[in-house]
Amino acid sequence: MAETLSKQEAKHVAELAKIRFTDAELDVIVGQLGNILTLVDTLNEVDTTDVVPTYSVTENVNMFRDDVADNWNQKTDLLNNAPQQQDDMIKVPAILDGGDN
């Protein structure tokens, strides 16, 4: 487990999160995250061999909805909250790359 986070890694993470930091801010973040990660490293003291991870404590299983369509008719309210809209569509600065999926 990495004990700290390098500035380079922090830059990469900021790119993934789409947040911009100044160089000085990034230094602070690296320091703070480094402290937290040092704390997180104490987890290695716990032997978790063969321990099943817990991602949720819900006891529910198979919580389904029947395949019945129900239109809540929220289109107008939703479009009115959009920063920009035109012709019933959400307007955003041009997408230039090929996209995903």
Binding site: M1, A2, L5, E9, A10, H12, V13, A14, L16, A17, I19, F21, I29, Q32, L33, I36, V40, L43, N44, V46, T48, V51, V52, P53, T54, Y55
Partner: peptide, 30 residues
């Protein structure tokens, strides 16, 4: 908020998931 987003994004990023996220979820079980 930025700090926590950074931490969480890092903990889930390629190569660190098992060491951080999965490990923490196992300690949760303990």
């Amino acid at each position: 908020v930025k700090r926590r987003i950074m931490l969480g994004t890092f903990a889930l990023s390629a190569g660190f998931y098992d060491a951080y996220f999965k490990k923490a979820a196992q300690v949760r079980t303990k």
